[in-house]
Design a protein around this nucleic acid. Structure first.
Lengths: 210, 210, 210, 210
DNA sequence: AATGAATGAGCATTCATTCAT
DNA sequence: CATGAATGAATGCTCATTCAT
């Protein structure tokens, strides 16, 4: 079953994010591609497989997405949009630290709902040359900016360690979140979301001076 | 130039890790493969390219390594051994926090010397099925154990936050290190190693109670 | 712009040659197809491109012409009719040599106006099997007949070299005309029509005894 | 059977023209490709067919020629080299007109021996954009130069018509030769080579003033 | 009369692997 | 030890054609 469709809570948002002319076909291909590529990586999946999994012909993939590369790019973009939207909703709290915690919690939840997206991200992000370098650069910037805003909010209200290079800190939190999120699914399904969030929040608490 | 050979400080250790019957041909192939695969990923490099870069014929690759997959597996195992060895050397400090910092510093340095290894890790580790799953799982356990020991050392000497679930914390540090290390190379080559280490070390200040 | 429509002098004739029920859509497709196929050859143009150039949907091409092959066949037939008609008009001169010159001049002009037709001819005529063999064979016969009549007229009024095998001579003139006409467009756009005609007319001076 | 190999008289020359490292494989592919492409055009023949006709696997085509496009380019180049060599041998006569006649005779004979080459030439030469435009331009220049030299020889010894634009005249002779050569095979196998040559020589006689 | 989504057979090309020398 | 010619299964992509609307 489609991972995207599986998340009933996100259905309303998902719909908004999709292009106006959402065909059943495009959606089926999207879901099938996200699932397969998330598991085996973009280069480990053939267009034939995606088409078969979506129950359409190979030509249909090209009719709808132009190329395998474009399909992946749209997949990444869609995932990030969805993640950003969920993060935006999460940060509405009084205290900035609380707000940041909510955000990380939401991120971990997102990664558990869309493990394929997380795998796609980590497996394609740092390749050289990456076919989707521009897409990743842009989307990486957006995600880091969201983390950065949360840290800004904290720095406004609390004293923070000025020695910590911002930028690197965002990246550390970003990386910790992705890896913790993936590892929970692959190696430690028994761990609770709260445990993951607490571990990642350690970085935040270390940023704030006592 | 070979990334392995580039690290003169590690030369002695490196030699020990290599098969006794290391001939020039095997070594040339090893270096060429590490370099190319580090840049473009295992599936992004052809056996022809590796052979050409090593200045030998394609048949020689098969004569020496049996298959492309075996070549990569040997590459990964070599990286694993080397990283563990370097981390072991790094933790020899009086203060456990200082020791942990040394370890992280060493890890970041290792990732910058063997970007191939780090990229291979993130792109293959969570795949289903992963071609080199065993070797990755083994390394993961060993690395998390090393981080765990460092945390144990800290917990013995300092009061730490008991709410933090150990296990998740190791994973968070592990993930932060890999992602920060990779991001520096791909997106921020201007950042210093100290910046990266400081950012990752933030977790200590969050873990240790004030 | 349409090559067919471009020739204002031929407009009246052209209209006559077109199917009575010429609607705008068919005409747009006809013009677009002639233009594109003239430049890149029948197999080098896709139905999508023709439809796009005509500003209609792909289905419309099939609705109007049944198949790409049929569209090309109609294009060729139209060219045949037009060329024969123009040659017929040209030979109305007193002197048979003058009449022949007019004909060749008209042929060269036709080839420059319908390069599509000439290119289609040379690229398809001698293929085994040729998709449009019948229509080409028919045209070939008619064209050689026209040249033959011109030679008959010359032979009636002037002494000619009896050693020259008629039949081969027509073919030589025919070939010279097509190749000179095509070469002007592809390699020597600076050459005048008069130059081309003079070169081809050389055969007359070689045919007619001094 | 191979057209190239079929000409026992040309075997000696053929051998000389081939690259030093002439494999049986390359030669088989060359022959098969020339035959098939000559009949159906470059785009009408698949690499599978060429490989099958040569009795090798498809990969072997790419191992030896790099791409279908390169194979065709080498085919054209080889054919022209062969033709030029035969023409060079033919023009060794006292009288320049006699020499020219020998050359045209040789050309017609060449075209009858290698009809595939002639078809390949006419079907690919004038396409826009031609994949092999540079190759054709270069080789076209060489062939026209040979005709031009013959005409130069005539102009030195005989009075010639100064009104005739040289360049166009070469093209006319060139085109007449190819088309007469092809038409004999396709439509008039009963015609003798002398008839063809006489017809083409009409252009030459028309060039010389009485 | 027209559309455009969908199809699927077909094609050029790649590449890990084999093997005779 | 090493080579490099040969292989063939796999793959991304094209495009003429169909058909429900």
């Amino acid at each position: 079953m489609s991972q995207l469709a599986a998340n009933s809570a996100a259905t309303a948002e998902t719909k908004r994010l999709r292009p106006a002319r959402t065909n059943a076909t495009r959606q089926k291909l999207f879901d099938a591609a996200m699932h397969l590529i998330g598991e085996r990586g973009a280069s480990g999946v053939t267009v034939d497989e995606i088409a078969a999994a979506a129950g359409v012909s190979k030509g249909t993939v090209y009719y709808n997405f132009g190329s395998k590369s474009d399909l992946v790019a749209q997949l990444v973009r869609h995932g990030v949009d969805l993640m950003l939207e969920q993060l935006a909703e999460a940060k509405a709290a009084e205290d900035p630290i609380e707000s940041t915690r909510n955000m990380i919690d939401q991120a971990i939840q997102f990664l558990s709902e869309y493990p394929s997206f997380a795998r796609l991200w980590v497996s394609e992000n740092w390749k050289i040359p990456s076919e989707w370098h521009e897409v990743f650069t842009e989307l990486r910037g957006k995600l880091l900016a969201v983390i950065g805003e949360a840290l800004d909010g904290i720095a406004l209200k609390y004293p923070v360690n000025p020695k910590i290079a911002r930028g690197s800190l965002e990246t550390a939190i970003f990386g910790a979140s992705f890896v913790v999120g993936l590892d929970v699914q692959t190696y430690h399904p028994e761990r609770t979301r709260a445990q993951s969030v607490d571990a990642i929040m350690t970085f935040v608490h270390g940023y704030v001076l006592p």
